[in-house]
Each structure stands twice: as structure tokens, then as C-alpha cells.
Design a protein around this nucleic acid. Sequence first.
DNA 1: CACTTCCCCTGCAAGC
DNA 2: TGCTTGCAGGGGAAGT
Length: 290
Amino acid sequence: MPELPEVEVTRRALSANLVGRRIDKVVTTRPSYFFLTPPAVLRRRLAGRRVTALDRHGKYLVGTLDDGARLLLHLGMTGQLFVAGARNVRLYRTAKRGAPLAPPPAFQPDEHTHLILSFSDGPPELYFRDTRKFGKCALLEPGANDRRLDKLGVDALEAEGSHLHRAARRRRSPVKTLLLEQSVIAGIGNIYADEALFFAGVRPARSSARLSERECDAIVRAVRRVLARAIERGGSSIDDFVRPDGSDGGYQDERRVYARTGEPCPRCGTPIRRIVLAGRSAHYCLRCQR
DNA sequence: CACTTCCCCTGCAAGC
DNA sequence: TGCTTGCAGGGGAAGT
């Protein structure tokens, strides 16, 4: 599931292939929840526009167009952005698990490909694929504000302990639930919340209100460290995430606790526990985390 | 305002 | 073997 590192890895790869180019043709497949802006509007508004910047806000990607409009993209759970041209090996493995890897010569949009952008200078093209359709795509007219972006808290890479502590004081919810709240700190998802809490030595179920300033500092420092490392490793390819060239990230191999229920804690050997908080699974070491 | 619950969707795994 | 069921999860809306 794409969180800040995966979105940032995507942003960097796309940036090199997108910024400065003029959008020529826009193909949208069948309408779906994915499109917050009607596909017809999107096609009309994007065609002919040049992309001048690609930024990230939390887990959102925001492309700026030469007329001042912005293209808002969210990968949701299973969203994938591809720069076509490299062989999208993983794409085909995802399409049929266990099938032998015999990649076709060129990418063929499948039933999960929602958006294809081609450019005036020819290939590569850009594909947005999303099996579960939790991803989002919206066009923001020049000068328009967006509630989703306005609500975001400080970006996780720039967060300080004080940001967390201020929010924590008046909450009764578990600290992990608080970390997942994008309005407090933007960019953390289920994987990196668990990983950061492991490094900070704090149990995910700990009451937010009872965290000391010192603990909040430790947690946020762990968050920044884990995210930075995950970006370095190209993100986590656990379920569907792949980089825009189709290759896997590498951070999944460095996971300490996430989705390692029953496996020995890398520090002390105690089996990793799994609990459910706010409907989401949380993984931690009973002994290393207090 | 804080917090919970539900829902969107599909692929996969477990159970019968 | 083949069906059904349940689960996963980001985030927004609606309800408490």
C-alpha cells in the first residue's frame, strides 16, 4: 500500500519523465469512483497542457499545468503509475499470480487501467492502473483550493515531536491511530506507523494522551528515519506497489514487524504480535515496545 | 470537536 | 475441486 515513501519514489521517477512535456492525448477507460472529475472534463482540460511541476503533499501527488490548473492523484491502496517504455514485468505478474514470467513486448492496458496520458513528443506514456479503485484523480482549476489538501497536517518528513505531542494531548485514541491521521502528520500509513513505533519502543495501543514529550520526539524521529530509509530503498513492494519502471522496491525486506505476525522480533526473538486498532492491523514486539 | 462505523472495490485465502 | 465467505486497507462521509 502506497505511503509517503512509495509516493515519493513515484514522484521522483515521474518527475524526470513528465515535467516539461506537453500532454497530447488523454484516454480514460470506463467511468469509476476513481475519477472525482468527470472523465470527459479531464480529457478536455488536460489535452494540450504542459506539465510544469510535480509535487507531493503527504500521499497526494500534485501536478501543476501551464495554465495554473493542478492534477491531483492519489494511489489509494493499489494504485500504480507507470512510465511505459521499460518492460513492466511486475505488472504482468500481478495480473496473473504464479504465471510464468513471459512479459509481452509492450504494455497492454488492461481492465484496471483507468488513465493513459500520451505526450506531444512521443513515448514514454503515463499509465494509471488501480485494481481496487481506491485511488483518486481530480483536476483543480487555477486558484481553486482543495479540502483534501488543505486538511493535511505537516508532512511526515518535516514533522517534529511537538506536532505529535500537541495533537496527542487531547486525544484518547491509541498512538498508532493518531499517526495514521493525515490531518496531524501527513504521509504515514499502516506499514511505516508500525515500523516507526518499533524503533521508538512504543506500543501501538498506547494512549496518545499519556505520551510524554520525550516519547513524541522519539516517535517522530523514528518516523522520519524509517521513511527516509524506505525512500532510499525504493519503497515497499508488499502487495501491489511497483516503481514507475515496473521494478519492485526493497524496503519490504527490511521490515521489522509489519506483517510479520508470529515471526521472531529481530531484536529479542519474541514472536511479533498482531492486534487490531481502529479496524487496522498493528504489529509489535511485546518486549521491545512499552 | 473527538471518535466510531460504514462504505467504496477486488484479489486472495480459508473454510466447507 | 469449486463454491462461498471474509478480510485487507486509505480516506471521506455520516452518525454518535
